[in-house]
């Protein structure tokens, strides 16, 4: 399903956060990169109609402004960055079931299996560790099996198992034909999920948008991001991890 923006603009207290963004994402995995404060989260929140904006956001050709909240939640799964900010229920199981009950859908429990180990189910979500909370938070939205996923920095807080779970989740979503938009502020995780396209937000506008294979270190450096060359030099060079000098 295609999600697109037309002249999207967002301002807070007179300060323009996003300026005139027109972009379209089709089925597949898309990375939105940008330095801290570039407007990545605001961009995702605008796509999910969670902030006031000028211009338009179209999902399958229909404006989100004309949709009810329930309809938007059926089409768009928005996963926020800080997992603790979104917990609403007393147990993990209730937290995950909440959206299926609200929307009246059976959901895709394979998504929950990929993210949340069974032993978490009886726990209070606020007592989970950062990584555990992140997994539960994502599962509590994506279980509704929306065709569009918006994942805001999905790798924060995660250990190796958690990163692997999210990579598998994105791969699963890709195989189901979903449109997955992932915001990241560093390039390392992008390589793990092998996106189809990348967009770089800087200064409230999309500076670059192209196929993933076209991404250059020069573009990353211009947008204030750590270039791949630097990561490789550090990890793979003579002083890097696991390399005997």
């Amino acid at each position: 399903m295609i999600i697109e923006t037309r002249n999207l603009r967002v301002s807070f207290n007179g300060v323009e956060i996003l300026r005139d963004i027109s972009i379209a994402f089709d089925s597949g995995v898309h990375i939105v990169l940008g330095r801290n404060g570039a407007g990545k989260t605001t961009f995702l929140r605008a796509l999910a109609n969670l902030v006031r904006f000028d211009g338009d956001v179209l999902v399958g050709g229909r404006s989100v402004k004309k949709m009810g909240r329930r309809e938007i939640a059926m089409l768009i799964g928005y996963c926020w960055q800080n997992p603790y900010y979104g917990f609403v229920e007393a147990t993990v199981e209730d937290e995950i079931r909440a959206i299926t009950r609200i929307l009246g859908v059976s959901g895709d429990w394979r998504i929950v299996e990929l993210l949340v180990p069974r032993e978490y189910m009886g726990r209070d979500p606020s007592t989970l560790s950062g990584g555990e909370a992140k997994r539960v938070s994502m599962a509590s939205i994506l279980v509704a099996d929306q065709p569009i996923w918006l994942l805001d920095e999905p790798f924060t807080y995660l250990d190796r198992d958690g990163v692997e779970a999210v990579v598998n989740l994105i791969d699963y979503g890709r195989r189901k034909g979903k449109t997955i938009i992932v915001t990241l502020h560093e390039i390392f995780y992008a390589n793990l999920i092998k996106p189809d396209t990348y967009a770089i937000i800087d200064g409230g506008t999309i500076k670059f948008f192209d196929r993933w294979s076209s991404l250059s270190d020069e573009e990353l450096a211009k947008a204030g991001l750590v270039p791949r060359g630097v990561i490789c030099d550090t990890l793979c060079g003579p002083r890097g991890l696991g390399v005997q000098s």
């Binding site: 329930r70 926020w80 909440a98």
Partner: peptide
């Protein structure tokens, strides 16, 4: 925001 993302206005 969290409730809206779940379809509750």
């Amino acid at each position: 925001d969290s409730l809206k993302a779940r379809g509750i206005e």
